[in-house]
Design a protein around this nucleic acid. Structure first.
Lengths: 257, 257
DNA sequence: GGTGATTTGTGCGTATGTATT
DNA sequence: TAATACATACGCACAAATCAC
């Protein structure tokens, strides 16, 4: 019962302990605000400060009319190196579907395409002038109806046209393979991984709650000649992790047996 | 002036707009709570709800007695693939120092070592029983006196002894090279990248503010025979990004000229 | 160096709205 | 419909940190 300097922090500490020790398991409902007021002999305001602190740490979620609940952080693996490897039979989407089904979930995807002027983030990486038109292909992935990730890929206009990417539907063999068939063979890429709190817009489009950051990685891929693709993947951190497999994977898998 | 459903959200929206449009630049001080009360004709409580929302989005930082300020998100690059490459002359620490100096900062590092029983997170990855003793080597990196990252590496006892890693000081040639010299040649690794809100402990040890997530990646490395190392790097997201360079980097660098 | 003014932090109370049960 | 529970908004007081003089 180590009460910290202030009342509400002390209360938050105690509840946090009960969560991290497992006494309050994920999904468990916390006592109501009234009960906590009685229990700690404080005002409702103080209780709400404590609960707000825990919510912003991603530990609990409060729902109007229902109560506060201990939040669960499951994690589906996003294979950053496996998804787009040309020498493997699975395309990016297929890897997601396989992973989800294996974990016992029902995956689905929504696809869209549009042509837009390149913003600085994209133009710089593609080495083209800002506002040059580019093709944006978006894939939103769902798990059991909830958004799992959003993936935006931008292609230079000429590359997209020659590879047939400027079409409003999914490409079964995968865009990387379609580009390779058109002569644009990717020989490398750079991934920039960052994390931030969701904007109000993200709360809607990604269905991500308060206290849960999003992971963002931006992949710039190129051929021997020039950059040909920028892909940005945005993932709610409470249900995703990114995995990079590098080097001799077989040696590791052998140790698992 | 699109006021959302509630007062404090509408106020937060307006201030957020002034920040994202650049009208309020990083470092700028916001109006005081009293001024905002007058400006919006609301109670202090409502103003504080709006400011708290912005703080938890990582947009502003409030300091007792001073005011609220627009937060800056700079980003130093953490080279995940470059740091430990054996075929390059720089060790992990050196890469950090070079990167920081190049960006005009003054880097420093603190090192420590201890022997401890392996927790599940480590034991599972090293394929050893829980509570088996392992060597933990910790590197805390600083930029201008502020923590930039914390790196913990765990080694199986026998590996650490043969490679001379169970010593309480830095190893100049790098631990990966020292292990290779002892016959433990890494042939691959897996990185698991996640993000979460800082715990109260992180707030202290990592000097990370409210509304700023931390990025965590756990690297499991192995030789042809078995896992030999688990490294966990924890980075405050407001001043770091992780970069993976894969494939033919030279081709990309050529396009930059 | 100190004092008072300013500014945010903590805590109390009350009332009403809205979603759920 | 009624009761419960969280959300929003008002008010007040004092503490703690900072700043200007």
């Amino acid at each position: 019962m180590a009460r910290a300097g202030t009342l509400f922090r002390g209360i938050a500490d105690e509840i946090r302990n009960r969560i991290t020790t497992g006494e309050l398991a994920p999904g468990t409902r916390l006592p109501t605000e009234s009960q906590l007021m009685d229990q700690y002999g404080t005002s409702r305001n103080t209780i709400r400060l404590a609960l707000a602190a825990l919510e912003n740490e991603g530990l609990i979620a409060t729902e109007q009319g229902r109560g506060s609940f201990v939040r669960e952080w499951s994690s589906l693996t996003h294979h950053a190196t496996r998804a787009e490897r040309v020498d493997r039979p699975s395309s990016s989407t297929d890897a997601f579907v396989a992973e989800a089904r294996e974990a016992g979930f029902e995956p689905s995807t929504a696809f869209s395409m549009r042509i837009e002027p390149a913003v600085a983030e994209v133009a710089d990486r593609l080495q083209i002038p800002i506002d040059t038109f580019v093709v944006l292909r978006r894939v939103v992935r769902y798990i059991d109806g909830q958004v799992s990730s959003r993936q935006d890929s931008w292609y230079p206009m000429d590359v997209a046209e020659k590879a047939g990417l400027n079409v409003p539907h999914d490409i079964k063999e995968g865009t990387v393979r379609a580009m390779a068939a058109a002569g644009y063979v990717e020989v490398g890429h750079i991934d920039e991984v960052t994390s931030r709190m969701p904007s109000p817009d993200d709360h809607q489009t990604l269905d991500v709650a308060t206290g849960v950051p999003v992971i963002v990685y931006v992949r710039t891929a190129w051929t021997e000649e020039r950059p040909t693709r920028v892909t940005r993947v945005t993932l709610p951190a409470d249900r995703n992790r990114i995995v990079y497999e590098l080097g001799n994977i077989d040696a590791y898998e052998a140790t698992q047996k």
